[in-house]
Design a protein around this nucleic acid. Structure first.
Lengths: 215, 215
DNA sequence: TCCTATGAGTACCGTACGGTACGGTTCGCA
DNA sequence: TGCGAACCGTACCGTACGGTACTCATAGGA
């Protein structure tokens, strides 16, 4: 069962017991299935066959549990680094398309959507610690991967831009547009999944038209 | 006091009493200030100097109140139609930039952010009726305005695209990128407000480079 | 074999919410 | 002046949650 395997790995990387990882797994399951309202301490304890007392011992309070869920999930998503190979136009485009498809995959994942909904829901009241955590553990690694790829493209003379942040913003916007928000609002994925490749290629084509080095 | 004026207008367009509009105004205020947790029936009643019984009489239940808040807020945002004037390259660009700036203004508005957070938070559990309502009353009018503008540009021979939806998606993505989501997650606006114009122009420049009719 | 730590299961407490019911008051209207 | 509708303020009810405390079972170590 590779689910348990992933749990073990993720637990190891975050200083968590295997048992605690399994509990977080159940908590994520509850969150995905029923939203924040379903994520009660009693519910988690029941679903994970542990006591509420253990939950509070391990995670402090409810927010600690939520934070641990985000960190735990983030530790399961491995962002593969761009290889240091020499880039030509074709391989750059291939890498960009792969990045775009991975991005769409991650953003449309049910766990990602549930955690984003959770963090956004908490963002109103003071702190928005969950939002920051989600940004740092979720978005930043992805941004680093894209940034490295863009930088490599520029070094290879394939891309031309002054502001890497702006170029990445354009790439992100072309790939995602308002699609992420629509998913967060509850719009059905429908048959969209099949369009990931097409959408990724279109976005990358447009991006290269904007930031490609030569005409 | 123009606040009362806006309330009166919005009430008129939605079949609501002026009093009910004022109540919704207070409810929005509560939501903006304290998030969903602050939006309790008792809290609204207290803030608006009305009774809970009246709330239930007017809006049915809590979800009816939330829906009414969305509809009420939407009715206050008037999307100006694109004028039927003849477009040249300069005026098209000006219209696009104005659209981009308006879009950034609306999305970053505190009421808009609060309502989006609310709808996203509710999206997990059944229906996601609020999400759909927010889409139809918020996003669709904006999309119509942009769609008409793009169509006019194409008719004038200034824009070239096959799929208007795709072109609009690119425009939206170039303008907004992941900025809306970051705001929803609680990131501070900071000094961004001042960059709206610059950001709008950059996005429109890129869009025209992609979809402009002639090289 | 005893001792201690860990944790499951459950009972419990205070609080707060959604929704309802009721008494008192204002206001339009005949 | 009397009547009825609308409505405010508040008390109330059932429920459910976060968090704590307590009991019992299990396992490992001296």
């Amino acid at each position: 069962m590779q689910r348990a395997e992933a749990t073990r790995e993720a637990s190891a990387g975050t200083g968590l017991t295997e048992r605690q990882g399994a509990v977080l797994e159940q908590a994520l399951r509850l969150l995905v299935d029923g939203g924040e309202r379903a994520l009660t301490t009693a519910g988690v304890a029941r679903a994970a066959n542990c006591s509420k007392e253990s939950l509070y011992k391990w995670f402090g309070d409810r927010e600690g549990l939520l934070s641990a869920m985000i960190a735990f999930q983030a530790s399961k998503v491995r962002t593969l680094d761009v290889s240091a190979e020499a880039l030509d136009a074709a391989s750059l485009k291939a890498h960009l398309v792969a990045f775009a498809r991975d991005l769409l995959d991650v953003l449309s994942g049910e766990v990602s959507l549930a955690l984003n909904r959770l963090a956004i829901g908490q963002a109103s009241r003071e702190g928005s610690r969950l939002g920051r955590l989600l940004q740092e553990r979720g978005r930043r690694p992805i941004g680093r991967r894209a940034g490295a790829l863009l930088e490599a493209g520029r070094k290879a003379g394939l891309l031309a831009f002054d502001d890497a942040e702006e170029a990445y913003g354009a790439l992100y916007g072309l790939i995602v547009s308002d699609w992420h928000l629509r998913l967060l609002l509850g719009e059905e994925t429908g048959a969209m999944k099949k369009d990931f490749s097409r959408r990724a290629e279109r976005a990358v084509d447009a991006f290269l038209k904007l930031y490609g080095a030569k005409a």
